[in-house]
Amino acid sequence: MAKPRVGIFDLTSCDGCQVEILNLEDSLLDILGKIDLVNFRIGKEVKEEGPYDVAIVEGSVSKTDEIERIKKIRDQSKILIALGACATHGGVQANINFMDENEVKKAAYGEERLTENYDVKSKPLSHYVDVDFNIRGCPIDKHDFVDILKQLLIGKIPKEKHNPVCMECRYNENVCQFQKKGKCLGPLTHGGCNAVCPSNNIACDGCRGPLEDLNLKAGLRIMKENNVSDKDILNMVRKFTGIDNYYEKIEELLKNGNY
């Protein structure tokens, strides 16, 4: 059987998730024995055009030409996988959606490089195209990348566990950030990260994205009981997941005191 043609692409992002793939030193050669990696900007000089069996895309859609690019990749691919927080939820650069555009550009690029043309708001891939699977996190856990490839290669439909970060936080025997009277997005956020932030005494800021089955009001209620300001909560939410229906819903609940 021919090896599946896989392309790894990037839109607006830091390339960190792709670097994580290159960091798979122990298994990268085994992986390349199973797939035909035909396009991988940061890892391969020669690139082939589509069609692709699997396209893996890092980054958010932040420029007009990226809208066309992601649509073209989607058209050329049987399976599309979003790679990392930018692709799944807009990422850090989605802060531009809530701030003065020119101020952000100046802070990011300085006066002299203000030519970068980020002319649309930063959106996750799913805003423009259908995404089949997510590899979550900022950055991704490289083992999630291997896992999803393995499942596809043996013909399984990759399944996510849908557990909150809290479960993994308990496995690591931490003291709950809420019980320390702090803020945390752990109970609202997809696990799979082994609760790396709370285990190092940093509150979860939600890089793996909101759970499908979250209880927003309950989360906000506790943070408000712990005297976390609305601004702090919103800043934390939009750090990685400045997506409309999540951020705006939280903003509205906070504004109306409805939690």
Partner: peptide
């Protein structure tokens, strides 16, 4: 109504 389904109870 105030439960997150965080599984803190079952995990511990």
């Amino acid at each position: 109504a105030i439960c997150f389904s965080c599984a803190g109870c079952t995990t511990t």
